[in-house]
Nucleic acid binder design. Structure first.
Lengths: 333, 333
DNA sequence: TTGTATGCGTTATCAC
DNA sequence: GTGATAACGCATACAA
């Protein structure tokens, strides 16, 4: 047993060593170690045993060079400047992807794509070190700029396209569930503070909201915001000014909801007495605010793991994979 | 100009192409492209021009294989299970490191180290794909288990050791500033809710608190907590039970502070009227809670960028690099 | 300062 | 099913 992965003389254990110890050729050793290709059960066992005994570990660089597969996943996030309040979202994705990468001996890097369709995607497509790309917060414009060479090794967390499979949360479903919850609680003048309009993902929630309101025979009231507290506060104020009788506010994120609550408090409206407020994401602190936020879960980590795994395994994936969101009932609505 | 980085026939541009185009040997081309080594200004210019014209981009795998430097940074976070509330901290670090990695064509992966000194560090030391290691939330035990082969390419975000340089926030300074602020505001019965005792980093804040209290001639009152809301709430309750006259609570994190505020509210204590509460970290939502949290900033991203940059540049670093924390005065204290 | 020759560790394409 | 052998693209002693 040689735990250190290096020989007595400090030399590293290579595939040649394993092959020699197992009494087979390097080619054969490569096949069984890599996992594909043919090999008789007998030799397979011998090679595995030798590898384990010597403490062999494949060299990622040599492997990447030989098969040209690349050794890193790239998270490409669209946006001008990292919006303070949604940075956690991108970080969560990168953290999850980095965890998925670890056992495979590869890594992840984070690129910020300028909003206007970038040659950056071209560069990534031509870079042999790039094993796959995960688009985040992407726009239609970026989606259109995806080079065909990336097909099969690019996915999107959020909206996708014909050539870019999408992994996303079922925000339409959660929005519907929230509106239904509000309606069941007797609210009838339900307004929405949506996410930034340049973000295609925001559109789905708005559409679902409109549909649900229409089904309930209620008028839609929508004001856009971005993810900053300041913006959310003014959006909430705008709602109150335009529709003073509003008795419920469905916010597109917990951050927006908290910003809205601050504004409501300033205007002496009780939450949830005068107006109910709901969020989205279920961030760790949603349960610790006052009042505790009623919201819907957003399994960002699981979505990212799913997407990264598909990329690493070169798995063929359906055009759209939706992850369920769960309604979390607390005190604010 | 060949933006795509591949020849007319689809072949990729290699160093050979550049060398040929510049009329030099591949070795020379390598030197100027890589940036070190000697080269006359004239040839340097020719090579650079050729590289630019052809759209040459070095192949990371080949480079890693040839020089054995590795192509990924590893963030090794200690902990049994990712404590829900502090996950943002690790994610923020990984996100920052991933950003630093991007322009260098390398990546980052995230490994969770079991609390009890792991052979995992040995494996990382022997893995040629690992360019450097960043320890996070590390313990003395882990620090002792660091293999000497990692010397020079391992750093710690948090406490360090003789062989592991430390990059950290000046939590002692911030704790002192907070106690001083409380004292200046007339508070005299100041208690602390500290972080988990297995985390060495927590010790520094506690020590600074004790020192500051001693200097002010006040008695120290400390109750430990972990980073969950539940734990913070019971810790705060414990404080009130043991020292009912407490008029200020300095919490080791914003999450703890918010959990404490929840507990205080349940016991009908007004914040900051009856008891002032301070946090630490200045998370995005600290300003949106009610009351808005007085806290101290924690430049996690900058610290991580600093550490990762040092690793990538193989820069020699001092044993300890402290980043300043700034007092953020809001409403809770 | 520049060029020559070789090594880096693996995978893939063939024959056998 | 297995074994030679040629890529893979670059860096670096060493010689010139």
């Amino acid at each position: 047993m040689n735990r250190s992965g290096s020989g007595r003389d400090g030399r590293r254990i290579t595939l040649d060593d394993v092959a020699r110890a197992a009494g087979v050729s390097r080619a054969t050793a490569s096949r069984v170690v890599a996992g594909y290709g043919h090999a008789s059960p007998a030799t397979r066992a011998r090679v595995d045993a030798a590898a384990a005994r010597l403490g062999y570990a494949p060299d990622g660089a040599a492997r990447a060079l030989a098969n040209g597969a690349g050794f890193r996943l790239v998270v490409a996030a669209t946006g001008m400047t990292p919006d303070e309040l949604e940075e956690w979202y991108v970080d969560r994705i990168v953290g999850s992807v980095a965890t998925v990468c670890a056992p495979h001996g590869i890594g992840v890097s984070l690129h910020w794509l300028p909003l206007h369709a970038p040659g950056e995607l071209r560069r990534l497509a031509d870079d042999r070190s790039v094993r796959g790309v995960l688009l985040v917060n992407t726009t239609e414009q970026v989606l259109r700029a995806v080079p065909s060479e990336l097909t099969g090794r690019i996915v999107s967390i959020g909206v996708g396209s014909r050539t870019v499979p999408s992994f996303d949360v079922d925000s339409a479903g959660s929005t519907t569930a929230i509106v239904d919850h509000l309606y069941a609680a007797g609210r009838r003048r339900i307004a929405m503070v949506s996410g930034p309009s340049w973000l295609p993902g925001a559109g789905r929630s708005v559409a679902a909201y409109r549909t649900a309101m229409l089904a309930a025979g209620l008028p839609a009231r929508v004001v856009p915001s971005d993810f900053t507290a300041a913006s959310a506060s003014v959006a909430a104020s705008t709602v109150l000014r335009r529709w003073p009788d509003t008795d419920a506010l469905v916010a597109s994120s917990d951050a927006i909801a908290l910003g809205a609550i601050t504004a409501l408090r300033r205007q002496a409206r009780d939450v949830p007495g005068d107006v109910a407020v709901t969020g989205f994401d279920d961030i760790p602190l949603a349960g610790m605010s006052h009042p505790a936020l009623t919201t819907a879960s957003h399994p960002v980590g699981r979505i990212a793991v799913d997407a990264a795994t598909a990329l690493i395994e070169r798995r063929r994936v359906p055009p759209t994979t939706l992850h369920a969101s769960e309604l979390i009932r607390r005190d604010s609505a």
